[in-house]
């Protein structure tokens, strides 16, 4: 579905991605784990077109999207849940969701999707007239995910959905991620620091270090990989 081939992304003179290749097929949950500053978020931003790669190629459904503008990429069905949630603080929950459906024009379908989301996250339905900024962190994350879902993405990119949330909420969020994947057959690309949880929900995983992919395997096998356990799962052996 999505094929990232040897992309190099720069911030000014700094090379953040030094040849990253990733392949995602339809219906999968893929996770990208790695330490701070490894280039996980940059990979995501490169796919979205917000920081386009200087070389290399990205194809989505056999269509090159390497130097497309972010809004075009979204219209193809790649939607992002940005890092740190980034909901619209002064818009209400409903308006936030409505923004997610910005590119869609099928009003009745949008309405249906909104109902689906309120089923998925009943707490959002309760707070539908509340301004986004007044929600708690967990609720904001749910809102951010819901907002992305409103675009009916074929590929959902998530940047650290567990960031700054209580363990219990994180667990809930990951369950929802799994549910979205199985119920709607939405392909999910998950960038995470919380490697343990991410690998538990994902089918396959990529490990990133200093702008390079150093390892890729089935999630289960990565979980039992000794080096991974030592480096990312905080186990002392």
């Amino acid at each position: 579905m999505l094929k990232v081939a040897d992309i190099h992304t720069f911030y000014g003179n700094i090379e953040a991605l030094k040849g990253v290749s990733i392949e995602i097929s339809e219906g999968e949950i893929i996770t990208l784990i790695g330490a701070n500053g490894a280039g996980k978020s940059t990979t995501l931003m490169s796919i979205c077109g917000i920081t386009p790669p200087r070389s290399g190629e990205i194809t989505f459904m056999d269509q090159p999207i390497t130097n497309m503008k972010p809004d075009k990429i979204v219209s193809l069905g790649i939607c992002q849940v940005p890092e740190g949630r980034r909901i619209f603080p002064y818009l209400t929950v409903t308006e936030n969701l409505d923004m997610g459906a910005f590119l869609r024009k099928d009003k009745s379908e949008i309405k249906k999707d909104m109902e689906y989301i309120f089923e998925l996250f009943p707490i959002l339905a309760e707070r539908r007239h509340q301004a986004g900024g007044t929600l708690s962190g967990g609720e904001q994350q749910m809102l951010a995910i819901s907002r992305a879902l409103m675009a009916r993405p074929r590929l959902l990119l998530m940047d650290e959905p567990s960031l700054g949330l209580a363990p219990l909420i994180v667990k809930q969020i990951f369950e929802i991620i799994k549910k979205i994947n199985t119920e709607n057959n939405t392909t999910i690309f998950l960038v995470e620091q919380n490697a343990n949880l991410a690998l538990q929900v994902a089918h396959r995983g990529y490990v990133m270090e200093n702008g390079r992919i150093v390892l890729s395997d089935e999630a289960g096998r990565l979980l039992s990989n000794e080096d991974i356990r030592k480096a990312y799962l905080g186990e002392s052996i």
Partner: peptide, 22 residues
């Protein structure tokens, strides 16, 4: 108008929603 309001609130989120910032 909605795109403007989104732009006012958060530029990155605005792009992630598929709004053409430029």
């Amino acid at each position: 108008g909605r795109a403007w309001i989104a732009l006012r609130e958060d530029e990155v989120a605005c792009q992630a929603m598929g709004i053409d910032k430029a």
